[in-house]
């Protein structure tokens, strides 16, 4: 398993736990009605699970498992992949901060900008991975 896939799978597991923890807190609020201010964490739960966990895990395994090139670098240039990995997680961190700010009582417009810029960075990183992975979707035996 290449280093980049390892970093991404570990980060995906981190986001899985963040998403699960926020989901559990929301369920606790839904059942016991202890802290209504937790409801704005619902987009954090959804974003962590879809982009941080599932998307990142799938991209990491695709980067590891798709057919390799016949010569070095076997999985394509490593630096753009590493940069895309960092951008994905930095974008998720920014979006998470944006989702948490309303709970802390910050103005919504500032939080919205943070959330938007976070998911913009995530989108750019996913596009970068698409460009990196696209040529590796092939068969060694030609088209058949």
């Amino acid at each position: 398993m290449p280093d980049i896939s390892r970093y991404m799978i570990r980060a995906a597991l981190f986001w899985l736990l963040i998403g699960a923890l926020s989901g559990t807190l929301i369920l606790a609020e839904k059942s016991l009605e202890l802290w209504p201010a937790l409801w704005p964490a619902l987009p954090l739960h959804i974003g962590s699970m879809i982009f941080g966990w599932m998307l990142q895990f799938v991209l990491a395994v695709a980067y590891w498992m798709l057919p390799k090139y016949r010569q070095e670098p076997l999985r394509g240039p490593a630096f753009p992949a590493l940069a895309a990995c960092c951008m994905l997680n930095a974008g998720m961190a920014a979006a998470t901060a944006g989702h948490l700010l309303p709970i802390a009582g910050t103005v919504h417009s500032q939080a919205d900008i943070l959330v938007f810029s976070g998911y913009l960075v995530v989108s750019i990183s996913v596009a970068a991975f698409a460009i990196l992975l696209f040529p590796r979707i092939l068969s060694y035996r030609g088209n058949y």
Partner: peptide
């Protein structure tokens, strides 16, 4: 609440 804790 239990279901949330079990999934976590």
């Amino acid at each position: 609440l239990l279901s949330g804790l079990m999934q976590l």
